[in-house]
Design a protein around this nucleic acid. Sequence first.
DNA 1: TTATTATTTTAGATTAATTCTAAATTTTAA
DNA 2: TTAAAATTTAGAATTAATCTAAAATAATAA
Lengths: 137, 137
Amino acid sequence: MNKTEQIKKILLNNKIQPSLQRIKIYEFLLGNKTHPTADIIYNNINKELAIISKATVYNTLKLFVEKNIISEITIDNTESRYDYNTKFHGHFKCEKCNTLYDLDLKSDFLNSLNLNGFKINNSHLYIKGICKKCNSN
Amino acid sequence: MNKTEQIKKILLNNKIQPSLQRIKIYEFLLGNKTHPTADIIYNNINKELAIISKATVYNTLKLFVEKNIISEITIDNTESRYDYNTKFHGHFKCEKCNTLYDLDLKSDFLNSLNLNGFKINNSHLYIKGICKKCNSN
DNA sequence: TTATTATTTTAGATTAATTCTAAATTTTAA
DNA sequence: TTAAAATTTAGAATTAATCTAAAATAATAA
């Protein structure tokens, strides 16, 4: 089974019709794990051939977030970034070089929280500071 | 020492000139612990007498965040909220009633993170879901 | 097939939070 | 008092995201 077929299957499993545009966006996120913005996704997909509009990028990202096959990162208030990885993990943003790092978290990270009666849909840990690389320069 | 004097002292301690507008914003945040937006702050301060402009609200909030006497909450990507409490704690947003709850976290909450060489400026834990109240209705 | 209905995509307008600009005001220092 | 520095300001500009209503495409029924 090739990549496109695999993506189609994932989308269908999540009750999402696998249109060309949706496949392209999901494929781009799988191949670009640097937490791209809607604009970056739009520009890259259209680089060779214009096959998608801005509105569709936004519509599709929203749909994917709702269906929980990607997650939305709002560590800056300026624009959202998107992550193919929906497993709970943290993000560190270097305020010097703007790199967004993934942080592995222990599986019991949220266990100490007392949220009885609360239904958790998604969780984000955001840390800002200066990364190791920038610190040593 | 009255409240205004206390606020002046806090601002001066953090190398912030205590102008009338700055005092009013800080005073509002101390008295309104519901994580207000810039717009809410602006409207409330000007309710009786117009003493502050939108630009100053934004300038001042940015200054306060830089000086670390308040913190900025970006749990939605639509608008920032502000918190007088800079001690690390979590936030839970109910997606039904939009209430923003504070979450107490153990002091060692971030200890398991392996961030050697990284300088942490601020940390946020954001959780979205349905709150107890909405769940039981 | 053909017609009908539902879904998806789209260009461009709109919205709204935030930032910018450059001038006015206030404060501080000399 | 005067000059310099800091603060505030109105309104314009920016920009990510949403909205609108039409067009294109796909799915379904006859």
